[in-house]
Design a protein around this nucleic acid. Structure first.
Length: 504
RNA sequence: GCCGCGUUCGUCUAGGGGUCCAGGACGCCGGCCUUUCACGCCGGUAACACGGGUUCAAAUCCCGUACGCGGUACCA
């Protein structure tokens, strides 16, 4: 009983609220979530708001709504209190202070009073060609102002005097830190490369390193699944676990999502220049379906081991495994994302599709006034017609524009190709014939048009293409006859007459 | 610079000593279907970074090089 409780998997997604939720962040959350689901464990959301300078008020809400949009919900978090709260680091300050105190008392940490300028000066002073950026570490700390060199009395006086100070980890060199990464295997660092990391900043807030280790411990986190950018600081964290005498959690560092072209990790700036969505919000605004984004992101670096590519969240949670994550960085390929989106759009029922397109359709409705959208039945027929030829649900409102309004222009290339010398006369006569028709379904429309063409001794194409142009303004689209049936006789006749007028 | 991680078609990837003159998907190109456009179907294009080693045998193991990425903050 106790055993199974202790061995229960707990993972966390720990974003800092500095802006909107990045898709790289969503992917990290997704992997953690899948891992937890797969192992019957808990997925915890922890807000790492220890940087007052970069804190953004709305960011936390943004993160929450982004996760919700993607269809994943934390088991514990600021809005879902569990047994390990609070879930915002800013609310856990006393805990960090207590642990820092412990480190101080046990000689694993010390106070440092150096100003940023003094540290900068030290860096300049010790800089050499091979080491252009000296660290605050075992080799330089003797030159600095800290409790290691100052008398206890002096330290006390400075602190009582409220001199700005930080708490640093006393990281001693001469060893090696080796650990097993669930994605990369054995990883090894020399302790000589680890500096005397700041644990408590001069504003009293902990740094990521301390807070992260303390919280993972306090929250019973068993697996740390995070981006590769954290790999180099893992030895610092491991040193902390060692100093506390704690068993570290398992580590898994996932490959980063790179900019298209492979230059650097996916950045907002770079992506936006190319019009790519890089935040969850942008994905939503661009009309991507959450299922597509989730599916795409999950397959970026992970694969199920067979050729399947389309998965529901439940399936992914069932199949997920850290062992199947690759080690290299992956490029963001919007083409593939679009393909996923198209797959999901095609799989929707007509009602679902309409539902997804609703926000865009609403805009269209207020702009048109033709009244087409007030007719639910025709709306559904239109959606069914468009479904196989769109990539986004919003294309219903955009690419299918001629269902709402008479074409204002006619595609030039198509006119050149399809509008012949006799088109006007032919269509004029055809419009009259149409106007006399009583019934009007697709089969009827087709039979009528073919009969008319034969009567006139013209190939059906001589009528079909110009009529399509007249009715829709563009060369492609659903079957002309289906389209006409949905549009209705009167609209078709009106549009054909108008085209005859305009195009002559 | 230093430290670390990585490297299979343009992209995401399968494969982890022989079954691989390397498989799938996206993209691209061609064809069929359709008097449109898509969808669908069929076909094509295109990769083991390089150099050494180990082995009867290496995309797969080892070493080195190159290149890429990450880190090197009182940011996370």
């Amino acid at each position: 009983m106790t055993e199974s409780f202790l061995s229960k998997v707990r993972v966390r997604f720990a974003p800092s609220p500095t802006g909107s939720l990045h898709i790289g962040g969503l992917r990290t959350a997704l992997f953690n979530y899948f891992f937890a689901r797969r192992r019957g464990g808990a997925f915890v959301l922890r807000i790492e708001d220890t940087d007052r300078a970069r804190f953004v008020r709305e960011a936390e809400h943004n993160i929450l709504s982004g996760l919700e949009w993607a269809g994943i919900q934390p088991d514990e978090g600021p809005d879902r209190p569990g047994d390990f709260g609070p879930y915002r680091q800013s609310e856990r300050r006393v805990m960090y202070a207590r642990y820092a105190r412990q480190l101080l008392d046990e000689g694993h940490a010390y106070y440092a009073f150096d100003t940023p300028e003094e540290i900068e000066a030290m860096r300049k002073r010790f800089a050499t060609e091979e080491n252009p950026s000296p660290k605050y570490d075992a080799v330089t700390r003797g030159e600095m102002t800290n409790s290691l060199g100052l008398s206890g009395e002096e330290v006390r006086r400075r602190i009582d005097r409220k001199d700005a100070h930080v708490v640093r980890l006393k990281a001693d060199p001469g060893g090696r830190i080796t650990f097993h990464d669930r994605i990369r295997g054995r990883v090894s660092f020399s302790t000589g490369g680890v500096d005397d990391q700041i644990l408590i900043k001069s504003d009293g807030m902990p740094t990521y390193h301390l807070a992260n280790v303390v919280d993972d411990r306090e929250m019973g986190i068993t697996h740390v699944i995070r981006g590769e950018e954290w790999l180099p600081s893992t030895p610092k964290h491991l040193l902390l676990y060692q100093a506390f005498g704690w068993e570290p959690p398992e580590m898994a560092h996932m490959p980063l999502i790179m900019n298209p072209g492979g230059k650097g990790k996916l950045s907002k700036r770079h992506a936006e220049k190319q019009g790519l969505p890089v935040t969850v919000e942008q994905c939503r605004e661009a009309g991507y379906e959450p299922e597509a984004v989730v599916n795409f992101l999950t397959l970026l670096g992970w694969n199920p081991g067979d050729d399947r590519e389309l998965f529901s969240v439940d399936e992914m949670a069932e199949l997920f495994s850290l062992d199947r994550i690759g080690g290299g960085g992956v490029q963001f390929d919007v083409n593939k994302l679009n393909w996923f989106n198209q797959q999901y759009v095609r799989g929707f029922s007509v009602d679902e599709l309409l539902e997804r397109a609703a926000p865009w359709l609403r805009d269209r409705r207020s702009a048109s006034g033709v009244g087409f959208l007030e007719n639910e039945e025709r709306q559904r027929r239109m959606a069914a017609l468009m479904q196989p030829r769109i990539t986004f649900s919003k294309d219903l409102a955009e690419a299918g524009g001629y269902f709402f309004e008479d074409p204002a222009t006619y595609d030039e290339v198509a006119v050149k190709k399809r509008w012949k010398a006799d088109s006007a006369a032919l269509l004029s006569a055809y419009a009259s014939r149409l106007g006399d028709a009583s019934v009007f379904d697709a089969a009827q429309a087709e039979a009528m048009l073919r009969a008319f063409a034969e009567e006139r001794g013209a190939g059906a194409g001589r009528i079909i293409h110009p009529v399509r142009l007249a009715v829709s303004g563009v060369p492609g689209g659903p079957s002309l006859f289906e389209m006409m049936a949905v549009l209705g006789k009167d609209t078709c006749v009106r549009r054909i007459r108008r085209a005859v007028e305009v195009l002559g």
